[in-house]
Write a protein that binds this DNA or RNA. Structure first.
Length: 489
RNA sequence: GGCUCCUUGGUCAAGAGGCUAAGACGUCGCCCUCUCACGGCGAAAACAGGGGUUCGAUUCCCCUAGGAGUCACCA
């Protein structure tokens, strides 16, 4: 069997679509799971869509996710160039070969003629097919038109009868009637190939063995097959993937304002988590394991696990998985990822040690990195809060006993000096619980008021004594006094 | 509209003639607990509908319904 070779062939739009990234992933995995090659080819034959810097988006994404290509722009390879606009002369040459062999023909129809055909078929409510007006022009007519410089396109000459069958590794065998196939344009009047034609030529020339793409191409695949046959080329294995959806009816798309890969990263998702999640969107491993690194995926991936029906992108599950990745990090790893966000939230107010302590508190409470800031900004500045916060049914607290509790704590702590190793959560916890015991009240009637006074929030990343440790003695006393003052009004 | 494809819980999905129809997210409940989260335990929740084939269909076939894709000198 020949070497497995797959390719990712994005058109550079400056937006890394999640569906495209998933296709790239599958292409990479199919190749790598068999020890094959993964090629990057840029399809930029549509000059109108040219976007500055768009190729960098593709390159950066692949780099960030670890999807490394063996051949492609910037890397070279045996079958370059890998940018379609640099391959221009190739396509015409192959189109002409098809004309010679009788599988394609010159078409000199004007835009106006085609438009009127189209409006005619629209009126009938039927599909538009080219009426094959130029299909059987005589050699003389063609020569004359060419000599006169009349613009032309080259069209594929479809068989008029019979059927064409192709096999897809996901969808199985699909057969269509040849008479439903349009004599599609292969070479445009500007001399550039259409996507369908360039794809076939490039895939063959680059020795692509497995063509992986969205299932929107399923219906044009018979035309591909006919092209391969006309050239006498070996037909690749087709693998069509169902789309990634935003909801039941709509694809995930830039038009709908849906997040691109870059957007997700900016929102605080980790590239590994995103990759892991989308690997599972439309593909299922043989066991129940859901967590895979890229190299684990390379081992586990199988084409038979790809599903036929569309998958809805579930942000909730991605979030959960991202949180799971965060929780599985070592404390050091998490701190280095979280540091920019922590710095942003608390500035220089706290020492490095305190920040590390904060990181340890928020690590199990963070699903995406962007949540960090709002969770910890109270360390820097006590928010304004309502005394309602002191009332908690389960803690059996109200504004009155909270005031009492805070006063007891203040009495106990104020004026005392604490060594550094004494002002720690564990020790403070004992002190506070002792206060409760001595006064025969519930622990919660001390702890809840203190936690509330220190955070000014209904929920906080840590309990009373953990917050106190980080805030330090002075700030703790200050915030307790503020609480007492508020409750005394 | 023609052609092609798809259809298991709210979501991702396993299952390939006989199963109490997996697992995960989410939801809900309980436990743990200095709030919340983490963690632990548990619950509710699905084979689109109708016909066949078969001793037996989620699984095979047909039809219906619903959905998607495609029908460009766009990719």
């Amino acid at each position: 069997m020949d070497r497995i070779r797959t390719r990712f062939a994005p058109s550079p739009t400056g937006y890394m679509h999640i569906g495209n990234l998933r296709t790239a992933l599958y292409e990479y995995l199919i190749a790598k799971s068999q020890g094959g090659d993964f090629i990057l080819r840029i399809e930029d034959t549509d000059q109108e869509r040219y976007v500055e810097g768009a190729m960098d988006v593709v390159l950066d994404t692949l780099k960030m996710t670890g999807i490394d290509y063996d051949e492609g722009p910037g890397k070279g390879g045996e079958y370059g160039p890998y940018i379609q606009s640099e391959r221009r002369p190739i396509y015409k040459e192959y189109a002409l070969k098809l004309v010679e062999s009788g599988h394609a023909y010159y078409c000199f129809c004007t835009k106006e003629r085609l438009d009127s055909l189209k409006t005619g078929s629209d009126a009938l409510g039927t599909s538009f097919n080219y009426d094959r007006h130029c299909r059987d022009l005589s050699k003389e007519e063609i020569e004359a038109n060419l000599a006169a410089g009349i613009p032309y396109v080259i069209r594929q000459k479809m068989p008029l009868t019979g059927t064409t069958t192709f096999d897809d590794a996901v969808y199985g065998s699909i057969t269509v009637e040849n008479k439903t196939l349009d004599d599609q344009v292969l070479l445009k009047s500007d001399g550039l190939p259409t996507y369908n034609f360039a794809n076939v030529v490039d895939d063959h020339l680059m020795k692509i063995s497995h063509v992986v793409r969205g299932n929107e191409y399923l219906s044009s695949t018979p035309k591909y097959n006919l092209l391969y046959e006309a050239f006498g080329w070996e037909i690749p294995t087709y693998i069509h993937c169902a789309p990634v959806m935003k909801d039941e009816h709509n694809k995930l798309s830039k038009r709908n304002g849906d997040a691109s890969f870059g957007d997700l990263i900016a929102k605080g998702y980790l590239p590994e988590a995103v990759l892991n999640y989308i690997a599972l969107l439309g593909w299922s491993p043989s066991g129940n394991e859901e967590f895979y690194t890229l190299s684990e995926l390379e081992k586990a991936f199988t084409i038979t696990g790809i599903s036929k029906s569309p998958s809805i992108f579930d942000v909730d599950k991605l979030k959960w998985m991202n949180g799971e990745y965060i929780r599985r990090m070592t404390a050091d790893e998490f701190y280095s990822k979280a540091k920019p966000w922590i710095d942003n939230a608390v500035g220089d107010a706290l020492s490095e040690t305190k920040k590390i302590r904060i990181a340890s508190l928020i690590q199990p409470r963070t699903e995406i990195l962007t949540e960090i800031e709002e969770k910890i900004s109270f360390f820097k500045e006590l928010p304004e809060y309502s005394t309602e916060l002191y009332c908690h049914k389960k803690m059996k607290t109200d504004t009155e006993n909270s005031l009492t509790g805070l006063k007891l704590v203040l009495d106990e702590l104020e004026g005392k000096t604490f060594a550094e190793d004494e002002w720690v959560s564990q020790n403070l916890y004992e002190i506070l619980c002792n206060i409760a015991a001595e006064n025969e009240i519930k622990n919660s009637q001390i702890l809840w008021p203190v936690r509330t006074a220190l955070s000014g929030l209904a929920v906080s990343p840590g309990g009373a004594t953990e917050l106190a440790e980080i805030l330090g003695y002075n700030e703790t006393i200050r915030r307790i006094k503020i609480g007492i003052e508020l409750l005394s009004k």
